[in-house]
Amino acid sequence: MKMIQCVSPKTGGTLEVLDMDVDTHQREIKGRLGVVPQENNLDPDFSAYRNLLIYARYFGIPRREAEQRAEELLAFMQLEEKRDVLIDKLSGGMKRRLIIARALINAPELLILDEPTIGLDPQARHLIWEKLRSLQAGGNTLVLTTHYLDEAERLCDRLVIMDHGKILVEGAPADLIREHAGSDVVEVERTPEAIARLTGLGVTYDVAGDALQVFTNRPHDVARELFEVCRHEAVTVRPATLEDVFLRLTGRRLRE
């Protein structure tokens, strides 16, 4: 991400952003990018509004234009009431929204977001998702990294799952789920009876802690079989998610 942003030097290979080489066109690229960093680095010496104006100055945006854009962006991110409030007095969700507003100050052609909703409560996350979707609807290109797979599933048209710096799979979320997890997941308590029945059926399963997971396109058939040998509450059928894909591809071992 840092290399795309032209902040860290490229470690190898070739890298072009917006058809420009990152080694030779750093300023041009940075001028057309919007960056939402993972860490909050708003300027604590200034109010929300002044933060946007001062940031606009770094892009060389004329003052009149910057003022107009700052007001529009505060309105867009629902921060008008906090216009003249210092950063320290904003909640976590407001800070994230202001950072997104700041990243949009130069009307970027490409918006890069690093974990945009990390550490936020559900209301704040949903508001940010709503805003990001409306940006997408407006034709903007967003590149985002996230550990929240529900976030990726909701927002991404195209998704890349990476592990230890290697690309594992790539595609639309729905396709990836269909391909790597099937349509549904049947989860059942890990009991000898359940294992015996699944083995008898020749159904493959994954062990996830004290549960067994069956990835299948025929969840009803599998569930019916399991109901015969297990308690009712012990069997759950749910649609497969990206999280299932991720865990299947990268394994369940903790990664430090």
């Binding site: 750093q26 300023r27 940075k30 860490e39 708003l42 300027d43 770094y58 060389g60 130069n106």
Partner: peptide, 14 residues
């Protein structure tokens, strides 16, 4: 502490 430099170098300022 404020990461102000990080914020600035994400813009065309070197």
């Amino acid at each position: 502490y404020q990461k102000t430099f990080d914020a600035i170098i994400a813009t065309p300022v070197s």
